Simulated scan of single mutants.
Amino acid sequence: MNILILGNSSDAHAVRLQNALTQAGATVDYLDTRMFPSQIRISWEPNSLMGSLKLSAQRQLKFQDIHSVFWRNFASVSIPSLEDSHQQTIAFNDSMSLLRTLIKACPARWVNSWEAYQFHKEKPLQLHQVQLLGVKIPQTLITNDPEQVIRFAKSHQKVIFKPVYGGAYTQILTESLLEPKRLNLALSLAPITLQEYIPGTNIRSYVVGNFVYSAEIRTHCLDFRTDLEAELLPVELPQQIQQQCRDIAKALYLEWTAIDWRQTPAGEYVFLEANPSPMFLHFEQQTGFPITEKLVELLMDNC
């Protein structure tokens, strides 16, 4: 059974999964897209739908011989610097086009798929899609209009802000950030996501297929990712919320995910975000939940 890990051996999560899959009897290769097109070779014939992936001179796979792919990290492609910037753009676009063709045309089971990652890039739409399921989300505004920012800030007692796409930690919106000159400059560079602050407890739920594993994250930090001493305590979510986890994963095309919640003092669960490629080693080590084991089962399943 041939399984690919989209990523490389410098990632501890990828290595952990590679070792577990190998022990389970699979043949595992890394698909490090940084090696394309200089070292990795990809071919595809639209007429016959036949494709091949040559990882090295000694290792070549037909698309149909790849059982599954675990999407750990997509590093784009690596095009050498060319004197002609136009030619470099063409080379990049051509390489990305063929790589996306591999991702779309290869009949393997993708955990997670290209569609899931494209949807994840549009986080405002992700929130809307989750709300359509009947799941509560925070009052949210995505904008680059200073007047709208001020209106939203005045309508809530406490507001947080974060990037629309991701890549930075959540912060509290303070009065100094609303200073007109500063606000106008910031919003002329990029829009932001504003949300009402939800008091309560951080909950993270990992969904692997139909399995849901959750833990309370005890921290004094606004964004628990900044707290290296955050405490993880396994919890059993209500059946309704566990089902919402599965429904969210399905609606966002996710075979597996980590869902972040805030549980209010009144016991209400508020959805914050679903991550299509979350870190899981620390969570697994602290809680004892068999996440790696369930990922191996998912990737080796014949469905």
Rank of each mutant, 00 (worst) to 15 (best):
A14L: 03
M96V: 02
G25V: 10
K250Q: 15
L17R: 06
H120M: 08
L61Y: 10
K162Y: 08
S52E: 05
A108L: 10
I150C: 04
V69G: 09
Q243H: 01
Q243P: 01
S48A: 15
R34L: 00
T292S: 15
Q239H: 04
W261V: 00
E122M: 10
I203D: 04
L132K: 13
R72A: 12
H13P: 11
G288I: 12
S56T: 04
T89Q: 15
A105N: 05
F152M: 02
E216P: 09
I103T: 04
L17I: 06
F74W: 11
W114A: 09
I103C: 02
L61D: 04
D145Y: 09
I248Q: 06
D32S: 08
P290I: 05
K154C: 11
L61M: 06
P265K: 06
H282S: 15
R204G: 06
F152L: 12
G167Y: 12
T140N: 08
K294T: 02
K104A: 13
I150S: 01
R204K: 02
I142S: 15
T193L: 15
T170Q: 00
H13E: 14
E45H: 09
A26Q: 04
P46H: 14
Q23I: 01
Q60D: 01
S43T: 03
S10Y: 07
Y169P: 02
Q239G: 01
L252N: 04
Q129T: 13
C303M: 02
E147F: 00
G288E: 12
K136N: 13
P46K: 11
N275K: 03
Q118S: 07
R262W: 05
N112E: 10
M1G: 04
Q157W: 00
K158M: 06
S48V: 00
T143C: 05
E255R: 02
N8T: 02
I160D: 04
C245N: 03
A57D: 12
L254V: 05
M300F: 11
Q87I: 10
R109F: 03
A153L: 01
L6T: 06
A24F: 01
E115V: 15
A230S: 10
A168D: 11
L295Y: 02
L133V: 09
R204D: 06
P290M: 00
S214A: 12
W44F: 14
A258L: 02
R72I: 02
N202K: 07
L17N: 08
E179T: 15
R204P: 03
V111P: 03
D11S: 14
R34T: 12
P138Q: 07
P80E: 10
L133N: 07
Q157L: 08
T226Q: 07
L189H: 14
E231T: 03
N184Q: 13
L173R: 01
A190P: 08
L49I: 07
Q263S: 09
S188M: 10
R100N: 09
A274I: 05
P107M: 06
K181P: 07
A186N: 07
S76P: 01
V159S: 00
